[in-house]
Simulated scan of single mutants.
Amino acid sequence: MYEFLVGLDVSDDEIYADYRAAMKPILNRYGGGFGFDFIVSDVLLSEVDVPINRVFTIHFPSHSAAENFFSDPAYLSVKIRYFDASVAHTTIISSYEKDY
């Protein structure tokens, strides 16, 4: 399993919820899913200069499945419509192979 730990600065919670709803069927087709998902009020220590108010893990069966998902034209259309309108900053905190 391949997993990303991601920090976002979500600027519009309603549009971001629409993004999650629209992208989830595409994510499921690639065997992906979300693990932990936190809305955070304070970030006490960060290695980046941009704000983070949401932290989550997203996982895929393999790194290539993740690459295929993120380059899928259907996903890119959803991203442009909802993600880009609702997220001010994205920080990939880490990506790694994970054993279950």
Rank of each mutant, 00 (worst) to 15 (best):
D42G: 03
S46Q: 15
E97W: 11
F38P: 00
N53I: 08
V87Q: 07
P25N: 14
L44H: 10
Y100H: 06
I52R: 07
F83V: 03
S71T: 10
S94F: 09
L76R: 08
V50D: 01
L5W: 01
E67N: 06
G33S: 06
R29F: 05
F69R: 07
V43Y: 05
I58A: 13
Y30A: 04
G35R: 12
S46D: 15
A21P: 04
G32T: 03
M23H: 08
M1S: 11
P51C: 03
I92C: 08
V40A: 11
D49S: 15
F34M: 01
L44G: 09
F70K: 01
D9T: 06
L44C: 06
R20T: 14
Y19M: 07
L8W: 03
A22C: 13
F70T: 02
R29P: 10
V6C: 08
R29W: 08
A85M: 05
A88D: 14
S11T: 13
E97C: 05
F4P: 00
S77N: 13
Y2H: 04
V87Y: 08
Y19R: 11
S62K: 04
Y2S: 03
Y100A: 10
Y96L: 10
D12I: 04
P25V: 09
G31V: 03
E47H: 02
L45R: 04
V87K: 06
N53R: 06
G7S: 02
S41Y: 03
K98E: 14
S62W: 00
V40P: 09
H59C: 10
R29T: 14
F60K: 05
